[in-house]
Amino acid sequence: MSLKKWAYGIKGKVKIAAVLGGVLSLLLWSNLMDRKRVTQLQTSFSAIYEDRLMVEGFIFDLSSILHEREQLVISSLNSHQLNAATSAHLKALDVKMSSLVEDYASTQFTDLEKRVFLEFKELVPSISQIGYDLKDNSLAETNKTLTHKGLAKLTVLSNIQTSEGQRLWEETNGIMLQKQSSSQFEIISLIALAIMIQVLLFSSTSVFKKIQQKPHLN
């Protein structure tokens, strides 16, 4: 009898160990997936901030510079002179515009965004030359044409930020929902584990009692 009890005890322990091992493996896998999702969330939030919100700020500043530059040139043409203060202001705007373009260039681009950005970047040297030579008869038209081209490119880039930001936000929400489902799965797994262990323990106890019965007393 003791040999049967020992054999059944070993068999019960093996079942419990197998259940524990299976559930713990699932929990370990779930934990690894959670870590991966946290990394994805960090990447998404970083992209939203660094490559979308910051870039939107660059675009706003570049648009402001183009507007201000255009008005300075118009003012100089109307007065038929380019004074030292206006010239210095134009140069300061050109330096700031070049700096913003370089900052923008260091961010992550979509394929469309990269193409439009390069088109805008090609306009910058020509825009930076406007206003220093008032003797140019076509200066007024050149100022208007290049400024409006630059602003049009910036509008497209701004629209891209909006659509990409929305896409990243939806992606982030999807990751958060996956993480929530994973947490629920872990809770359910723990509850199932507790129930299975209880069933195996009670089953073992019931068999032990039957084995311990003495037939001649029945």
Rank of each mutant, 00 (worst) to 15 (best):
N159S: 13
Q161G: 04
K13G: 10
G165W: 04
D111S: 14
Q40H: 10
F120T: 00
S203R: 06
M97P: 08
T162N: 10
K11Y: 09
S182R: 07
Q166P: 00
Q40N: 13
A84E: 10
W29F: 14
P125A: 01
S204E: 15
E119F: 14
L200E: 01
T205Q: 13
I211W: 01
A140C: 07
L90D: 04
A105Y: 06
F202T: 12
S128Q: 08
T86Y: 08
K153V: 03
S206G: 05
G22Q: 02
F45S: 15
L190C: 10
I65Y: 02
Y8N: 02
L28P: 05
Q180N: 07
Q108I: 15
S64K: 11
D136E: 09
Q81H: 10
F185L: 10
K135F: 11
V124R: 00
L201H: 07
L90E: 04
E186I: 11
Y132A: 04
L201M: 10
N173E: 12
L24V: 10
M97E: 10
R52N: 04
G22S: 04
L217F: 08
K91C: 09
W6D: 02
S204D: 15
L72T: 07
A18F: 09
A18I: 09
I188Q: 10
L90S: 03
A192R: 05
R167L: 14
N83H: 03
E164W: 01
H148L: 13
R52T: 04
H67N: 09
E113M: 07
K114E: 14
L200G: 00
E141Q: 13
E119D: 15
F60G: 07
A92H: 08
A84K: 07
S76T: 02
D136Q: 11
L90A: 04
K36F: 06
I195Y: 05
I175N: 03
S98L: 09
K13H: 08
D133C: 07
S63M: 00
N159G: 09
V207Q: 05
H89V: 06
A88Q: 12
G12T: 14
Q178T: 07
S44A: 15
S203L: 05
V199W: 05
L100Q: 00
R37D: 14
I130R: 02
S99R: 08
Q81A: 11
S2H: 11
T86S: 13
D136Y: 06
Q40T: 12
G131K: 03
T155H: 14
V55T: 04
S189I: 01
K36R: 08
T155D: 15
E164F: 03
T110Y: 04
I65C: 02
W29D: 12
H148G: 06
E164Y: 04
K114G: 15
Q213L: 12
F117V: 01
Q108E: 14
Q184I: 06
A85D: 14
S46W: 10
L217Y: 08
S79R: 11
D103H: 08
E119I: 13
E186S: 15
K15W: 05
N137S: 15
W29V: 14
T107G: 02
Q198N: 12
F58K: 04
Q42K: 14
E122C: 08
